[in-house]
Every structure is written in C-alpha cells, then in structure tokens.
Design a protein around this nucleic acid. Structure first.
Length: 270
DNA sequence: CCACCGTCCTGGCTGC
DNA sequence: TGCAGCCAGGACGGTG
C-alpha cells in the first residue's frame, strides 16, 4: 500500500520517464468513480492540451502541476499506482483509467481495488492545507514531532497514521518506526518522553529514506516503483502474529489499533 | 479532542 | 483439490 516512500518513488519514476513537458490529449475513464471534486467532463476538458510542468508530492498525494496553474492530484489509497508507458505497450490489466499523452505515451492509473482517487484542483491547499509536517523536510525536528504529540491521549500508533499529525506515514511504516524506537503502539502520544521523541524522529527519517532509496534503486533498474513494502525486504517487524521478533526472538503480537492491524514485540517495545 | 461506524473495493488468503 | 467467504485498510463524513 503506497505510503510516502512509494509515492515519492512514483514521483521520481514519472520525472525519470519524462512526464514533464508532455501534454494530455484525452482521458479514458473506465472507472469514473475515481474522479472526485468535479464532473468527468470538467476534468477531461480541464486537462485537455495542458502540459505537465512539474510532478510534486505532499504526504501521499501526487500532483501533476499543469501549465495553467491547475493540478491533477492522485491519491493511491491502498493499491493505486501510476505507470507511464508507450501506447503500444499492453495496458496493465488492472488499469482503471488512463490518459493519452502526446507522442503516443499513456499515463495509466492502475488500481486493483478501485479505492484511489484523481481530481483536478485550482488550489492544492484545499486538499493538503491541513496536513501535518513532511517528515523528510528539514523543518521536521524531534521538537516538532513532540509538539504534534503533546497532550494527545490517542495511541501513538494512531497519531503516526493521522495525516494531520504527521504527513505520509501509513500502517506499515508506523509499525516499523515504533519498533525501531522501541515504543509500544498503545502509548498515549502525550506521555512520550523527549528521549522517545528523538528515537521516533530518527527512526522516521531513517526508515522512510531507506525505503525511498530501495525503491529508487528498483526504478533505476528499469522497473516501476510498484513493489510492496513487504516485498522490499526492508521491514523489521514480521507482519504475522507469533512470528519471531527479529531482535529478540519473542513472538510478535498482533493487536487492532483503530481498526488497523498492528504488529509489535511486547518485549522490545514498552 | 476522542471513539466508533459505515463507505468504498476486490485480490488473495483461509478454512472447510 | 475446489470453492465460498472474508479480510486488508486510507480517507472522509457522520454521530455521540
């Protein structure tokens, strides 16, 4: 499931494949429910003959900035991904919507579970204005993290997944961060010590950066950045109850936090 | 501020 | 082995 590293790798993949400068020549919306915020017609007419000026990311949103100031904003949700292919290349079977570009290229929105969204916005801030800090931004410090968790009673696991607390982290990397920082997922956010804040901050930066590097390596070898976090082989927490903890060998525990499966080591994380 | 619920979806896994 | 059934969960909106 795409989290910050996956979306960032997707951004770099699209840049590397030369999306910037290309022009939309149409839209084939086989799954129209993915379109949010406007009518299908407004989206199609809105992007027609517009050039992509930049590919940006904020949290898990991927935005294609067009030459008229509007942005075509994708959210991958659970299973979405974008591919840039020659029109002659057989389309991925799970392609839900696709966008013909000039020079016979296609931008494919692949999404097996049909939960992803796309919308054309004049003002990105309406979508991303309330999001928490970008964890890989220089301005993200242990102090900023602690301040975001201050006085919060919710489990730190839930807060890490809350896009308005900190942007871009999802279920899997939240578990990884807490494991690395040896913090129990049910710890109320406001009770974390400065030391724990530092550990979590360092773990966040390291884990996200490492995942991006790994994905970018895959992309540089020619593949699209669609490898799942599990498939990357960088995860330290087995996502299976009773599997052996990679640090101490004790059985990994599975609990549900805010209806999300949460894996942690009861011995290492306190 | 917090908890919980329903909604969206179907590939792939579990269990009989 | 085959097949039915159900789980996975990010964001959002609503309720209490």
């Amino acid at each position: 499931m795409p989290e910050l590293p996956d979306v960032e790798a997707m951004r770099r993949y699209l840049l590397g494949r030369g999306l910037v400068g290309r022009k939309f020549t149409g839209a084939v919306l086989d799954w129209p429910k993915a379109v949010k915020g406007s009518s299908l017609e407004d989206l199609v007419l809105g992007i027609l003959h517009k050039h992509v000026q930049d590919v940006a990311r904020r949290a898990k949103f991927l935005m294609l900035r067009l030459d008229d100031g509007q942005s075509l904003v994708f959210h991958m949700r659970m299973t979405g991904s974008l591919l840039l292919e020659r029109s002659a290349t057989p389309r991925h079977p799970m392609t839900r919507n696709f966008f013909p570009l000039d020079d016979d290229w296609y931008l494919l929105f692949v999404d097996p579970r049909k939960l992803g969204t796309v919308q054309l916005v004049a003002d990105e801030a309406l979508l991303v204005g309330n999001l928490g800090p970008e964890p890989l931004d220089e301005s993200f410090t242990p102090e900023v993290l602690m301040q975001r968790l201050e006085r919060r009673k919710a489990p730190v696991k839930a807060l890490l997944c809350d896009q308005n607390v900190i942007a871009g982290i999802g279920n899997i990397y939240a578990d990884e961060i807490l494991f690395s920082a040896t913090v129990h997922p049910l710890t109320p956010g406001g009770t974390l010590t400065p030391k724990q804040g530092e550990l979590m901050h360092a773990a966040t930066v390291e884990i996200l950066t490492q995942a991006i590097d790994k994905l970018e390596d895959l992309v540089s070898k020619g593949g699209p950045p669609t490898e799942s976090a599990e498939g990357l082989g960088t995860l330290k927490v087995p996502r299976k109850a009773n599997a052996a903890c990679t640090k101490c060998g004790e059985p990994i525990q599975r609990i549900i936090v805010r209806s999300r499966g949460t894996y942690f080591c009861p011995k290492c994380q306190t």
